[in-house]
Simulated assay, not measured.
Amino acid sequence: MKENAQFYTQPLSKTIGQQIINVNNSSILELSKESIVNLFRAQGLLLFRGFEADVETFTKFSNELSTNFMDYTGGVFKRKVINGNSTLLSVNDFKDKVKLHGEMYYQKNIPLMLWFFCANPASQDGATIVCDGKLFFDELSDILKDLFSRKKLKYCGHLERDAWRKRYKTDELDVVKQTCKSNDTHLQINEDESIDVYYICPAIHPNRTGEAMIFINSLLPAMAISTDLVSFDDGTNIDDTIMSELNEIAEKITVEINWQKGDILMIDNTRIMHGRRAFVNDKRDIYIRLCSPAFFY
């Protein structure tokens, strides 16, 4: 453990992240923002533990380091608004596992940074899982590296009227048109007012400096839900051999975060993929905020 400005840190794992540990009974709001930013730039994932934060403190702390908060318009999961704040959302509306993914990579406008807050951990299971997208890319076979350099992913969806009203938070198809246009998403409106959408993007992306490639996308959970949701951009299927290799890599490099009450997690959504293990009880209460960093990154 080493001293770093106003806090102590220790590795979250051998491959990813740092924990910022409260050993001086400090408030998280008193921590050196400059030190946090520098550590985040280097690590891409920070876990703040032992600060006894509540929802109000979490909101204030994340406000100080973030900008451009999003309300999850266009998001595929159902998420409940917390305390009337449309940028503070629950992630517990179902209990199944969620495979590793980048947040909202099925559209153009993604949150560059994510915050998670543990209001209450599950009594068992329900760990959040994370991995470094650079390490994931490095683990790919040469065949898959070449394949993903040549072919992009095509995310597809069919939404009945009630479904698109919930996803896009509107009753107006003109608003849906504008949202899809801003996200480079192809939209088809059907006679019954259902819609079909698709979005094409790479599975791999260069990092901020352009010196390395990152495997980050929404492929794994989309394929787990239905093989109809994603294909290659040329229309060819993503076969079982490809998915087997990807799932094997995911399990090999996954790191689990077993929540403690008051934990805060800060994630670079251009580099770090996340997901979760399944859980069975109703006590798990984890919140998320989607945003951009309020600092040069």
Rank of each mutant, 00 (worst) to 15 (best):
G75D: 06
F77G: 04
K80Q: 10
I82A: 08
N85Y: 00
N85K: 06
S86M: 00
T87S: 15
L88A: 05
F94P: 00
F94Y: 15
F94L: 06
K95D: 13
K97P: 01
K97D: 13
K97Q: 11
V98T: 09
K99M: 15
K99G: 10
H101V: 07
H101G: 08
E103Q: 15
I110G: 01
I110H: 05
L112M: 12
L114M: 13
C118Q: 07
P121H: 06
S123F: 02
S123E: 13
S123V: 07
Q124G: 01
G126V: 05
G126P: 08
A127V: 00
T128Q: 07
D132F: 02
D132I: 01
G133T: 03
K134H: 11
F136T: 03
F136E: 04
F136D: 03
F137R: 01
D138K: 11
E139A: 13
E139Q: 12
L140I: 03
S141G: 09
S141H: 09
D142V: 02
I143L: 13
I143N: 14
I143D: 15
L144A: 07
L144Q: 14
D146M: 08
L153G: 08
G157N: 05
R161Q: 13
W164R: 03
W164H: 02
R165N: 05
K166V: 09
R167H: 07
R167D: 02
K169L: 10
E172D: 09
E172C: 02
L173M: 08
D174H: 05
V176H: 07
K177P: 11
S182E: 15
N183D: 11
N183G: 07
N183Y: 06
D184N: 14
H186Y: 10
H186E: 14
Q188T: 10
Q188G: 03
Q188S: 12
I189Y: 10
I189W: 10
I189C: 11
N190P: 02
D192Q: 00
E193P: 04
V197D: 04
Y198F: 13
Y199C: 07
I200Y: 09
P202V: 06
A203Y: 01
I204V: 15
I204R: 04
P206Q: 05
N207K: 03
R208S: 09
E211Y: 03
E211S: 15
I214C: 10
F215A: 13
F215W: 14
